[in-house]
Design a protein around this nucleic acid. Structure first.
Length: 1111
DNA sequence: TTGTGGTGT
């Protein structure tokens, strides 16, 4: 079904093989030299040689063993090679032990304050800069000519960048939002008028001041809007009988057709009363086209500085105040440290001051260079009390917290960090996982008075996280560390919050803050915002940083004008990597490069091991590598990175069969009874090698060795792997492995594995199993997707097996198709994965790809989300925040130009943006003011297409059902599919828990399950007579709600409880948004929702058609 | 009767 959200089929196999072969071809030349590289590097580590004689003995023994096992004759050449190989192997094993010893003694790492980012690469702001220059030019002209009455609105913040502009803006913003403003009042009236003639009322930010005496039902408004705005004009919604399926009810016409033939509010209303949108349009065209209309704006007087204090002076004052407080004895060390490090700080500040002489990032006067302050600060002569920044708020931490805290590297850096924060509106802090930045920096701020009433910075400390769990758990942890209740240290996520009026520190997901911007653009409740995990570059984070960079300027300006007790806002960007040039050097974003503080992490060293060759079948390789680690290396958890659910399930099954608790005890039992080791023990576990190879395994091994240790046998590699015949299958495997088998080195381990799968779709309780310690004498083996790379940190991992790939969503801008593809990860991701081995002690990372591939083929960083995802939703949200010319927005990395255009076009088709008046269907960048329909759509936490469905779903009382469908579509497919049944990880069905008998039992169970599965499928498909997947969805959602939810229902109906719960919550949320914004509309949020009538089913077919038409 | 990494309002 070709819906926009239904992605192209998963075709990883085909892709993998092509990718594999392509890469192989490329690598042909380098793989030889690369093969030796890791060994050489590592060889240098060895400083001691254990007794040589012993080694020789051992080698000889191995050789003999091997020779006796195989009857083949040894050529001297082969013998030599084998010898060399064994040599290497033994060395390697020793090295591991030695290295472990070495690193255990390693002391903690130091921290440094980097000079602001000049070495970090180049920014990507050229286009913005050009734009900026142009805008400045325009603005100067405008101010010269004078401007008339129309107030500027938020969008201008992003259009105009020079200082006068900002003043003007701040003014406009204030009057527009906070004060009583006639213009805005008028807008409200306009909206009211529109409402009367059948238009959706605007969002709450446009206050519908007067009570509507005869407000039409919003239902009809929506309906008319839907018809009038974007569809053919001749629709009669009230028509009877066969609904207007054929009449193009569901078809969207291009904007030209709509605007030409259309007689609905959108054009007719705006003729009589100029709408917001049109005014915006005017302003826009002014700025874009250099048309300066003297009559549209009043002359702007240069703003008065009501306070003579600049930001720096203010900061100094605060510091001075801080210094008046007592110096607690344990701060003495910090103080000493800061004194011994003056040059560093000085350099940092000098760098800043000298680059930008006149105006700083806040438009503040920098004529007093910051170095002067720095000198004063450091000399401590200019200030009455001494050198140290001192805490304001007393906190009581539990003793064990204090203890643990001392070990965190960031704690010793409190002073430089706080000084940087005090002196700069924007600070970037880099610190890898484990540095404690997320928990400690908010505490530093809190202790310095941020977030406490009566201090200089009474506003809350806001910390954004990209994930809900992180927000919740961090709030809990910081609360615990500060011994404060959850009402002081709170969190807010989509469906849950602990915020109270007394909240000082607030953790939230970035989406929450972004939503907050819609109601309070200045974020007046906050005195500092920390954007955490900025390196992940999620869309929300990027947008937030862009918006915040402007809010900071506004707040600064308003504060200077003494408006409404507004204090400046500070921004702290925290990143785990040093890839901060997109933030630090982006002049559009921050005109003064913010200082970058680098904090070392308390991370143990991790040794990286590359494979000699890169195999396409990384799943098999992962199993083999894990087997080797398990049988040979000291205790410690193993974390395996794979790409998807199916792979993980397969690997888990195979490992379980070989090293699971049951498999081990079976084996031991058999041995105990003196039974010989079964030859086919590995059956059903490993890919079956060709029988003839198991006969002459040694021979195969030697040939394999030829390939890998020899010099020029690469052709075999390429051909063999590409053909995929039985021969190559066996030979593909690692030479070491083959030899090990022969040398008897892979003796079975008697240690069972505790194997735990981990991926996002897994039920939460199953996910939690990775945090439980494994049973005694077991080795923890976690088989995970990317989720373990960023979202979860698993304790006790010592070995990481990295397949080097990840499944990623790709979005083709030209055709709008999204697909999932397995592709190579970036170097940064590989580093992140490796780092997971060093959390609890020194670790090892085994990469299932060659160092050459890594070096030459891996990207340095992965592409930011905003450049590989559809951005209609983002654009709509920005437009609803009055950011009309999205192209001028200071993105850290701007999205593709075409993608922007495309998303505006889609939004125009959806009716969320107005087509440029009088223009044809050709879309130019100038068009695109948000319509009232767009505003209504932006209210919903949904992608624009889904919000649009809600609007269309008004008719025939279908809204309750459409809400169900939209919720389900938005959350994602809840169904568990057939092949997942009985796999044992989604449901509580024992996986193959032993040999044949149990296997057959499981088989029977599986068959029964399958039967139940198809029955359930049939039941749900029958709604709408098997005509639509959407009805199947609706059916199962309806049934779930009717049954009141619950695990039991999910098990019986083969749906994921997590998804169903989320759907339920989203349904509630959407319903409540509809209810509070459109009081006359019934969202039908009732648990016992009765099934739709045939009539409604037919109507929904239309909605379905609509959804499909808009691509 | 055929399928999907991770997030978020």
């Amino acid at each position: 079904m070709p819906g926009p959200h239904l992605r192209e089929g998963y075709n990883s196999k085909a892709r993998q093989s092509t990718a594999g072969s392509r890469k192989k071809g490329k690598l042909k030349k380098v793989s030889r030299s690369e093969a030796e590289k890791p060994a050489d590097c590592n060889a240098a580590i060895i400083t001691t040689k254990t007794k040589e004689e012993k080694e020789i003995e051992r080698r000889e023994k191995l050789l003999q063993e091997l020779a006796s096992q195989s009857e083949s004759k040894w050529t001297s050449k082969k013998k030599k090679r084998l010898e060399k190989y064994i040599d290497k192997k033994i060395k390697k094993e020793e090295r591991l032990v030695i290295f472990d010893k070495l690193v255990k003694t390693q002391a903690s790492l130091s921290t440094s304050v980097l000079q602001s980012s000049s070495t970090l690469g180049t920014g990507k702001a050229s286009t913005f800069q050009e734009r900026q220059e142009k805008d400045e030019d325009i603005f100067v002209k405008k101010s010269l000519l004078g401007q008339s009455g129309k107030r500027k609105r938020h969008q201008d913040i992003f259009d105009v960048q020079n200082a006068e502009g900002e003043e003007d803006l701040a003014d406009g913003l204030l009057s527009g939002q906070a004060e009583e403003d006639t213009e805005f009042q008028n807008n409200a009236n306009e909206d009211y008028i529109k409402a009367e003639v059948g238009v959706i009322q605007g969002p709450p930010s446009l206050p519908p001041k007067k009570s509507t005496q005869s407000a039409p039902s919003v239902g009809s408004a929506l309906q008319r809007n839907a018809n009038g705005g974007v569809t053919a004009p001749k629709v009669r919604p009230k028509s009877k009988g066969k609904y207007s399926v054929q009449r193009g009810w569901g078809t969207i016409l291009p904007p030209s057709a709509a605007s030409e033939s259309d007689t609905s509010f959108d054009s007719s209303d705006s003729e009589s009363v100029p709408s917001n949108d049109e005014r915006g349009e005017e302003l826009d065209s002014e700025s874009e086209e250099d048309i300066v209309d003297g009559s549209t704006r009043q002359p702007q007087p240069l703003p008065l500085k009501k306070k003579s204090l600049g930001f720096k002076e203010w900061a100094v004052k605060q510091l001075g105040i801080a210094k008046g407080y007592e110096l607690s004895p344990n701060n003495a060390t910090e103080e000493a440290e800061s004194v011994t490090e003056p040059p560093k700080k000085k350099r940092k500040l000098e760098g800043q001051g000298s680059k930008h002489e006149i105006r700083g990032p806040l438009g503040e006067n920098l004529e007093l260079p910051s170095t002067t302050f720095a000198k004063r600060f450091l000399d401590s002569s200019a200030l009455p009390t001494s050198k140290s920044y001192i805490k304001v708020i007393d906190v009581k931490r539990p003793p064990e917290v204090e203890e643990a805290r001392v070990l965190l590297p960031i704690v010793t850096e409190e002073q430089p960090i706080m000084e940087a924060i005090m002196l700069n509106p924007v600070v970037i802090i880099c610190g890898e996982t484990g540095s404690g930045k997320t928990t400690q920096v908010p505490q530093f701020l809190f202790e310095a008075g941020f977030g406490s009433a009566g201090s200089e910075n009474p506003g809350m400390i806001g910390i954004t996280q990209p994930r809900r769990v992180a927000a919740v758990s961090m709030a809990a942890r910081v609360g615990h560390e500060l011994s404060l209740t959850s009402s002081r240290v709170s969190y807010q996520i989509r469906y849950d919050a602990t915020v109270s009026p007394s909240t000082s520190i607030k953790f939230m997901t970035d989406g929450v803050l972004l939503r907050e911007l819609a109601t309070d653009f200045l974020l007046t409740k906050y005195s500092v915002i920390i954007v955490d995990e900025a390196h992940e570059r999620s869309i929300n984070t990027d947008i937030l940083i862009g918006v915040l960079s402007r809010i900071i300027k506004l707040r600064e300006n308003m504060w200077q004008e003494g408006k409404e007790n507004i204090k400046p806002l500070r921004l702290i960007i925290m990143s785990a990597t040093l890839r901060v040039s997109d933030f630090a050097e982006n002049k559009t974003l921050f005109t003064t490069p913010p200082p970058v503080i680098n904090v070392a992490a308390r991370q143990h060293p991790v040794t990286i091991h590359f494979s000699r060759r890169t195999y396409p079948d990384y799943v098999t390789q992962a199993i083999k590598k894990t087997t080797k680690i398990h049988t040979r290396l000291p205790p410690g958890g193993i974390l395996i990175f794979l790409t998807g659910q199916a792979e993980i399930a397969g690997v888990c099954r195979k490992l379980e069969a070989k090293f699971g608790r049951k498999a081990i005890s079976e084996k031991q039992k058999r041995r105990g009874q003196g039974q010989p080791r079964r030859d086919n023990e590995d059956e059903d576990v490993w890919p079956q090698p060709d029988p003839k190879q198991s006969v002459n395994f040694a021979q195969a091994a030697m040939e394999a060795e030829d390939v890998d240790l020899g010099q020029d046998n690469l052709a075999f590699d390429v051909d063999g792997n590409m053909d995929g015949d039985a021969d190559s299958e066996a030979l593909e495997s690692d030479d070491e492995d083959q030899l090990d088998t022969e040398l008897g080195l892979d003796e079975d381990s008697n240690t069972p594995m505790h194997i735990v799968p981990l991926y996002s779709l897994l039920p939460s309780d199953k996910q939690m199993r990775v945090f439980q310690p494994p049973p005694p004498d077991c080795r923890l083996v976690v088989v995970s997707t990317n989720i373990a790379e960023t979202s979860l940190t698993i304790p006790g991992i010592r070995y990481v097996v990295d397949c080097g790939r990840a499944k990623e969503r790709h979005y083709d801008v030209t055709n709008g198709i999204q697909s999932f593809q397995v592709s190579w990860i970036a170097k940064a991701s590989a580093a992140q994965r490796a780092g997971r081995a060093g959390r609890t002690g020194p670790g090892h990372c085994y990469r299932l790809y060659s160092s050459a591939l890594f070096e030459h083929h891996f990207e340095k960083f992965s592409i930011p989300e905003i450049q590989r995802m559809p951005i209609e939703g983002v654009v709509l949200q920005m437009k609803s925040m009055h950011i009309d010319t999205v192209i001028n927005f200071p993105f850290p990395t701007p999205p593709d130009h075409y993608a922007l255009q495309k998303s505006e076009r889609i939004l125009t088709y959806l009716g969320a943006l107005a087509p440029a008046p009088g223009t044809s269907s050709v879309i130019t960048k100038k068009e695109g003011q948000i319509t009232d329909l767009g505003r209504a759509m932006a209210l919903f936490p949904l992608s624009p297409r889904f919000s649009r469905m809600l609007v269309s779903g008004q008719q025939h009382g279908c809204l309750p059902y459409v809400i169900c469908i939209v919720s389900a579509l938005s959350v994602g497919d809840p169904f568990i599919y057939e092949d997942a049944i009985g796999r044992g990880d989604d449901m509580d069905i024992p996986a193959s828990s032993g040999p044949d008998l149990i296997k057959s039992q499981a088989k029977e169970e599986r068959q029964q399950l399958r039967k139940a599965f198809f029955q359930s499928q049939h039941v749900h498909s029958s709604l709408g007579k098997c005509t639509s997947d959407l009805f199947k969805l609706l059916s199962v959602v309806g049934a779930y709600e009717y049954a009141g939810g619950g695990q039991k229902f999910c098990a019986e109906h083969f749906v994921r409880p997590k998804a169903m719960e989320e759907i339920h919550k989203l349904r509630a949320q959407i319903s409540s948004i509809v209810h509070s914004n459109f009081p006359t509309t019934d969202p039908g949020f009732t648990p016992k929702l009765s099934p739709p009538s045939d009539h409604q089913v037919a109507a929904k077919h239309c909605a379905d058609g609509l959804r499909l038409t808009i691509v």
